[in-house]
Amino acid sequence: MDQPSATDPDPEGSGDGAGGDAGGDESGDESVIRTRALTKRYRGGQLAVDGLDLTVPAGSVFGFLGPNGSGKTTTIRMLMGLIEPTSGTARVLGRPMPRAARTVLPHVGALIEGPALYGFLSGRDNLVRYDAADPTADPRTRNTRVAAALDRVGLAAAAGKKAKAYSLGMKQRLGLAAALLQPRRLLVLDEPTNGLDPQGMREIRSLVRELASDGTTVFLSSHLLDEIEQVCTHAAVMAQGRLITQGLVADLAAGTRGRLVVTTPDPADAARVLKEQGAGDVVVAEDRVTADPPDGELADITMALVTAGVRVRGFGVERASLEDAFVALTGEGFDVAG
C-alpha cells in the first residue's frame, strides 16, 4: 500500500515551536511510535502521563502494560490525536501528532477503550460509516473492503443484524473489523480480547500474529499478561503515569529472578528454614513453599532443609513469568489502580 515515506521532509514541522528538537532528526529511524517527554495534565491538575519516552520499533508486536489508571489510555489517545499533550512530543509513523493526524491516521487502525457502535445501524452499516469518515478510503471499493473486514473477524453471517443486538464479543469483533478496513501500517489495539470467549481470544491472537507477519506493527494494550507473553515481541510497563521499563519481552522476564519452589510434606518447617537462610517473601500453599531465592549457593539451602529434618519431595527455581516481572516492577498486583 501507499504510505508516507519516513524520509520525507516534514512539511508540518515548521510551525512546531515547543518540540523543535524532534523536528527532523528522528524521521529517518525505524520507530513507528516515538514520544519524547510526553506529558498530560488534566484540567483538575491530575498528572495522567508524566514525561513518557516510548519507542515502538517497526514490525514489532508491542505490549503496553500497566495497572488501571496508569495512563495507558491517555497515552493512546494522545498518540491518536484525540487529546492534546500538555507538553512533550509524539511522533507516529515519523510524523508529529496531533498535527499530522490527517496524513498519519489513514494508515492506523485503532480499537480504543472498547468498541463504540451505532446501535440502530447494522454491523455492515457501522463499518460503512467509519469508512466514509476516512477521506482517503475509496468509495468504489467500500463494500468489498467492508465485507472482507467482516469476514476476517468472523462476523460475515451477522453483518445485517442491528449492532444493538450484538453480544459484547461480537461488538468487540466489529470494532476490530473497523480497524481492518484498510491495509494498515500500525494497529493500536486497546484490550482487543475483552469480552471474548476463549475460542474468540485464540482467534484474535492468531489474527494479531497473522497481521504482524504481514509487516504491520501492532501496539497492544492488555491486562492479560500471558496474552502479552504469548503474542508480543516487545513490551513497556507503565505505572502512575510513568514508563517503568520497555524492551524485548524475553529480556523483561529474564530481568526478574525466578522463584524458589520447595515441595514438601512439612511446609511449616520448610518455611522457617527458608526464612533462616535469608529467603524473602516466603509463601506457603499446601505442600508447596515458594520464596525469593537468597544470594549465594542454592545447594546450601537443601542441606539446611535436610539438616533440619524437613522431608523434601521437590526443589527448584521456577522461571520468572512476565507477571512476576510486572509485579516486581510496579510493586503491586495488576488490578490495583495506580
Binding site: 484525540l82 490527517r102 492506523v108 480504543i112 472498547g114 451505532y118 467509519y130 469518515a133 476516512d134
Partner: peptide, 18 residues
C-alpha cells in the same frame, strides 16, 4: 456520549470536516 466520536476522528474524519 456513544463513544463513536473517537472512532470518527481516528478514521480520520477531520474535526473541521466533521
Amino acid at each position: 456520549n456513544a463513544g463513536t466520536l473517537r472512532y470518527l476522528l481516528v478514521a480520520p474524519a477531520g474535526r473541521t470536516r466533521l
